[in-house]
Structure formats: C-alpha cells, structure tokens
C-alpha cells in the first residue's frame, strides 16, 4: 500500500534544507520506476538506488530506510544519488541513531526522521563531531589533504 509508506514532515527531527517538505507518502522503488508521476520514493536496504537515476528530475524526496542501524547499504545508496546529481531531499528514516548522524550527513542525507526521537543536545554535538574530514564524499567538504595542499 503506497500511501502507508513513508514518514510525514512531522516525524522529521532534523532538516538541513530551506524548501517546503514534501507532504505526501512515498512509493517503493519498483512502483517509482513504473509510475510516471511519483515525486517521493523510499529505498529499502536491498534496493538498487541506480534504478532511480532516470527519474531524478521528478523526485523531490527520497527516503532511505535503515531497518537496522548496522546495515550500511543506505550510505552507498545516498552517495550514489548525490553523485548522480540528485538535489532533492534525502531523508534517513528508521533506526537512525546519534552516532550515525555525522556519517549520514557526509553521505548526502539532509533530513533525518529517526523512529525514536533523539536527544537534541546529543545530536547537535554529533553533527559537529568532525571539524575536518579525510575523504571526499557527497557533502563536498574540503578534505584534510585538500587543505594541506591549497595554494
């Protein structure tokens, strides 16, 4: 049931965007590929995020579900979408915990709807854990190596 899927804007605890949140349900990756009008989709861990690449223009919201925080496939899904130029909302949902926030942010997530609300202060600290980063990722932050060799 497509309309049972997805989180509502009320469930989003952290959002790093200025645009209006999409206020309708998401569809599965399969349904998104079959339908021509879906603007919101939800990726499960086993889904191939690349199936969505032909439809990125019409997508305003992609939810990536983490049924278990130890299943890290969603991090790759997020980066793949950002690498392909997706600029819409990328929302981490499910078992989203404090200690995953900074990595998720680096992989391109810009909204977070944890299934259990997180302590605001702990989360604020978690988002700010790393002043510097070693790797290039979806957030386009300048890396330590870049800074070492800047002209």
């Amino acid at each position: 049931m497509a309309d049972n899927l997805g989180t509502s804007p009320d469930e989003v605890q952290f959002r790093f965007r200025d645009d209006e949140a999409v206020d309708h349900g998401t569809v599965t990756v399969d349904a998104c590929c079959d339908q021509t009008n879906a603007a919101a989709v939800r990726i499960e861990p086993g889904d191939d995020a690349r199936l969505l690449l032909p439809f990125l223009d019409r997508l305003a919201l992609v939810e990536v579900n983490f049924p278990s925080f130890g299943d890290g496939r969603g991090y790759s899904a997020a980066r793949i979408l950002r690498e392909a130029g997706y600029t819409g909302e990328l929302r981490a949902v499910g078992q989203v915990l404090i200690d995953q926030l900074s990595h998720m942010r680096r992989c391109g997530f810009d909204s977070f709807a944890p299934d259990k609300r997180l302590d605001e202060e702990d989360a604020r600290r978690a988002f700010a854990t790393w002043d510097n980063v070693y790797q290039r990722a979806a957030d386009a932050r300048r890396t330590i190596a870049d800074k070492r060799h800047e002209a």
């Binding site: 890290g72 991090y75 992989c107 070693y134 790797q135 190596a145």
Partner: peptide, 13 residues
C-alpha cells in the same frame, strides 16, 4: 590509513 579512517560510507560493512 587516512582514507579509511572514519570513512562515512564504509563504517557499517
């Protein structure tokens, strides 16, 4: 070592 330390995508392999 530097690349793999705190790699955001590969922490829950």
């Amino acid at each position: 070592r530097q690349w793999s330390s705190f790699h955001p995508e590969f922490t829950y392999l």
